[in-house]
Amino acid sequence: MIKATPKPLEEIINYVKDFNKILVAGCDGCVTVCEAGGMKEAKVLGSALRLYFTQAGKDHEVVETTVTRQCDKEYLAELKDMVENADAVVSIACGCGIQYLTEMYNDKIVFPGVDTHFMGINADRGIFEERCAGCGQCVLASTGGICPIARCSKRMLNGPCGGSEAGKCEISKDTPCGWHLIYERLEKLGQVDRFTQPVDPKNWRTSRDGGPRVIIREDLRKAEPQHGSAHS
């Protein structure tokens, strides 16, 4: 799922300090799981903002809410009255949710309340790790199920580089070398011969390099009535 962390409170206060009626909008999706933008975090942020405004002697009205997913129009629609009643919205959904909320309520000022980082897993309580870089062309079948794009610091397709040492990446002793992991896994699977054949340059068009991406799945799209009569 998408991993985010709360922005420093000082930064959020700085965004909203000149507004009176503020809506803190959380999301029950990914950001709830990583405890950055769910109901609990919305309540904490709302409370903190009220404390700030009160001690600063400013009139204010801070309300908190969440929706099932801020990346869906149908759920964002539920916010209509609350958004209209607010001068500014702090969205603590991921960057997608924040933008979609902005798109939907275009005349409202919307601030981000979290920093969105990556797609990852919950390794342990409070530990989130990146696993997929969303390159749009999965190579896991040939790399033992470990992604070199997301887990090698140099996105190499022909690793490990000369900086791999004792299973760690050259950038830090806390970072496992992705290619070391791939090697161990391929060795287990008896596929070490994969290391003898060069892997050709990757087509990055399916990654962010091709510009903002859109997926159109005709099989999933709304069925439009055909022109003409089916009975003719």
């Binding site: 409170l9 000082e10 206060i13 904490v44 903002l49 404390l51 700030y52 001690q55 600063a56």
Partner: peptide
């Protein structure tokens, strides 16, 4: 403590 510091409490 961090939040109370940031909010001026």
């Amino acid at each position: 403590k961090e939040i109370l510091a940031a909010t001026g409490i």
